[in-house]
């Protein structure tokens, strides 16, 4: 205490008069940065809003001509023929079919890859394998579509003829190609989610005499379920929205069937083939594109909401 007083008296430390507590400047730079950041965040929100609005306006005009019931429950899809028919079910089923076959490939392959990467692979192996898997996600979908049409379809048709009834087009083959394409999404995000599970939970299970597989399936996987479901939802959205692969490999004939061997037209493929530059605005064909787009948007939205609800209900929260 005495020493401190001595220093204080000499004025060396701690006794200088208090400085101003007001900001030395108005900090315009900081405010500008804050504004810029907010603006960037608003861009996404504004884009989404603009898309929804631009989808809705022609959709409303479409429904002023075609009854909602005829559209949603009709089984004849011939919007560009005369007489036109606007039953959307065949293209919805086409989308469901390719998505279903895709997910049948992507979910098991993706999840098992994720379990391998996070629980079994040595760090050296993981360092190589994970980036290679992720590279697959970067391949342009048009390349995957051509691969499906030229390589996958003949190969699968030879081994399993029921998968390709109208060569080279097949909902099943297009689905498998989509599935391979979205494996990286599921594998990579699920792997991250499982690796984020605290090591203490694994140790606890090992210390009870659990094998590696039991630790992975009974502890790590359930604890990571929200991340796993998120990856599957994201992958499903990609599969539903995928256009190029189905345009090239699934054929173009609307077909109310889940048969993997048949040729189908999906909602996205319909939009892709119909929305060419020379289509006149305000025509019924023009409005149809938007009605299908709105339905596509609604389907992915509902799926997302349901998935979030499910995750909230079943997830295991660890801290």
């Amino acid at each position: 205490m005495q020493a401190r007083d001595a220093i204080g008296a000499s004025g060396a430390i701690g006794t200088s008069p208090p400085r101003s507590l007001e900001a030395p400047s108005r900090r315009y730079g900081e405010k500008a940065i804050q504004g810029l950041l907010a603006l960037c965040a608003i861009v996404s929100v504004a884009t989404t809003t603009a898309i929804v609005v631009s989808l809705l306006i022609p959709t409303l005009s479409f429904f002023s001509e075609v009854p909602v019931g005829d559209f949603l429950f009709g089984t004849d899809w011939a919007p560009t023929f005369a007489p036109a028919s606007f039953g959307v079910l065949p293209v919805v089923v086409g989308t469901l079919s390719t998505t279903l076959w895709g997910m049948l490939v992507a979910v098991p392959v993706g999840l098992l890859s994720a379990i391998y990467l996070s629980e079994y692979a040595r760090p050296g192996v993981r360092r190589v394998v994970k980036p290679v898997i992720e590279v697959l996600a970067g391949i342009p979908t048009v390349a995957i579509g051509i691969f499906a049409l030229i390589a996958l379809s003949p190969a699968i048709g030879k081994v399993l003829p029921f998968m390709v009834k109208v060569p080279p087009f097949s909902a099943g083959v297009a689905g498998i190609a989509i599935g391979l394409m979205i494996v990286p999404i599921i594998a990579s995000i699920s792997d991250d989610a499982m690796r984020a599970v605290p090591g203490g939970l694994r140790e606890a299970a090992y210390a009870l005499g659990a094998t590696r597989m039991k630790v992975a399936t009974r502890v790590v996987f359930p604890a990571a379920i929200s991340g796993v479901v998120a990856s599957v939802v994201l992958a499903t959205s990609r599969a539903i929205g995928e256009t190029m692969v189905v345009l090239l490999a699934a054929g173009a004939s609307p077909n109310l069937s889940l048969d993997p061997g048949s040729s189908v037209q999906t909602m996205t493929a319909f939009i892709g083939t119909t929305a060419t530059g020379d289509i006149a605005t305000g025509t019924i064909t023009y409005d149809t594109i938007f009605a299908v787009g709105t339905l596509l948007f609604a389907m992915t939205l509902v799926m997302n909401v349901v998935a979030i609800r499910l995750v909230r209900r079943y997830r295991e929260v660890y801290e």
Binding site: P198, G200, L201, A204, A205, G209, A210, P222, V317
Partner: peptide
């Protein structure tokens, strides 16, 4: 490890119910 159990520094219950925690070993 079935015969030699372990308790760790930080409590590490599984994010499951109390019953499922205690039942984990016997079930596995």
């Amino acid at each position: 490890r079935k015969m030699i159990g372990m308790v760790f520094q930080k409590p590490n219950p599984f994010p499951k119910s109390i019953f499922d925690n205690a039942a984990f070993g016997p079930r596995v």
